[in-house]
Design a protein around this nucleic acid. Structure first.
Lengths: 254, 254
DNA sequence: CGGGACCTTGATTTGCCTCAAACATAGTGG
DNA sequence: CCACTATGTTTGAGGCAAATCAAGGTCCCG
């Protein structure tokens, strides 16, 4: 192959691509799931040049409630806690963002919630001003963003059902089952059983997510352990021996 | 004006427009707020031809949880109750759609909730298959839809805070205040005080929205009346004498 | 080995739910 | 026009699930 002056500069179809991507995009694990991958290699390249990679340590803030809506973020690695505060200090955790999640997709000029890293986190940051120009050029990117926001809305609606109508036991079971299913899906496991599920957030975060108090969450974890619904491996990891049984306690959701 | 062969066939800029719109779009009150108005008169015309107007009576269903995602709906007139059911019959009302709201913007193949008319309703129905072609031709429409879905997501997040962290009194106050503000905004009033606010939904709907029981909602209404926080005009209309005071009971939300 | 953050467990209180019944209001048919 | 029913709303009394109050335990890190 006399025309090749280096290894793997063309992919198996003979098109150039990886070569022309910004270095921080080349091995990105969420490219296909994220906005950047929606408009082909050309779109990814332009997106990559408009974006900036950020690394944050645990407890560092991505943005705070009330900040101006200047950037969109794509979570690449780690977990981010999204929360909304009442003026008197009460706090609701809206959800936990994982790789592939989009943050900051607000319609208004102010962000309605805060985003704080729970674990070390890598995010991709793009200014809205640049993003709008990208969307004009690559409409599939905007479509992808719309689909992601729609999926977030559906998740929010599921959680409204949980908060409004489920008991403490059902809420905790729903939460653990959701984590386990997500973990199984991202690990490619067929069923959520016996996959060790990481639980990086604190009991306080879980309580604030489920509309409960720390003590109630802790008691419910203990009860589930006693009944064999979960098998904890330290306070921040667990297994689900019988997915079906946990789903029964969770009360379904369709 | 010898070239004019009829009244008002050209607008004040001299361009043709109303003339070429489908008759059901000509006087549409939500055109500017909706998806259809996002891409100029040309976009509205194409949207109007792809859409079908539907009139529904109270209690009639727009769509049901589990239905395939085939159409997008734009509410033109009336109020629609969005709800999500648990298999055992418990139900959470996710929200109440009013003129301008978009329904059926789901990413997945199945609808995650039901939509039922509370009052007589007029909606505009478009098949997703046609809508996607419209979006390809008029990207601003897709942008508008994205913005609407983002706003819905933010509303859902506000409601998660209400469901997860507020007391019964705060929930009811938040709900009534929200209705009053929306009514004042749509009536063009500067403040929500003294505008009579319609309350078309039943106590059961309100309870199912706020994660409470009917009795609790009714008791709280009675308490608010006694304290002068609201002035009911029959069970389905009320006034807010002092917006500030009601907002105090609502516990804020930013 | 001391200090602090986090988690678990126990005892008690309470806000909302549950159960129960009376009271409106509207529609129906005699 | 008025029983009669169905549907929705209000009010009352008592119970319970989760909050609150209060220790004590565990883990990590300096």
């Amino acid at each position: 192959m006399h025309w090749s002056n280096g290894p793997a500069h063309r992919d198996r179809d003979g098109r150039r691509d990886e070569l022309e991507l910004p270095s921080h995009c080349a091995g990105c694990p969420v490219r296909e799931a994220g906005i950047c991958g929606a408009a082909g290699v050309d779109g990814t390249r332009h997106f990559g040049h408009a974006a900036r990679g950020l690394n944050l340590g645990a407890r560092e803030s991505v943005f705070a409630q009330g900040d101006p809506t200047r950037h969109l973020f794509n979570v690449v690695e780690g977990m981010v806690r999204l929360s909304k505060d009442l003026p008197d200090g009460r706090e609701q955790v809206l959800g936990f963002a994982t790789p592939g999640s989009v943050l900051g997709a607000h319609a208004g000029p102010m962000l309605g919630h805060s985003a704080v890293a729970i674990t070390p986190v890598r995010v991709c940051q793009v200014a809205w001003s640049r993003l709008e120009r990208l969307f004009d050029r690559f409409p599939p990117m905007e479509r992808r963003l719309r689909e992601i926001v729609s999926a977030d809305l559906e998740a929010a609606q599921d959680h409204m059902l949980t908060l409004g109508r489920k008991t403490a036991r059902e809420r905790v079971a729903t939460f653990l089952l959701g984590l386990a299913r997500k973990e199984a899906a991202s690990a490619g496991a067929p069923d959520a059983g016996e996959v060790p599920v990481p639980l990086p957030m604190s009991r306080a975060d879980i309580a604030a997510h489920l509309g409960l108090r720390i003590e109630t969450v802790s008691r419910t974890f203990s009860e589930f352990s006693r009944k064999g619904l979960i098998r904890p491996c330290g306070p921040h990891r667990f297994r689900v021996p019988d997915t079906r049984r946990l789903a029964g306690v969770a009360g379904g959701d369709a």
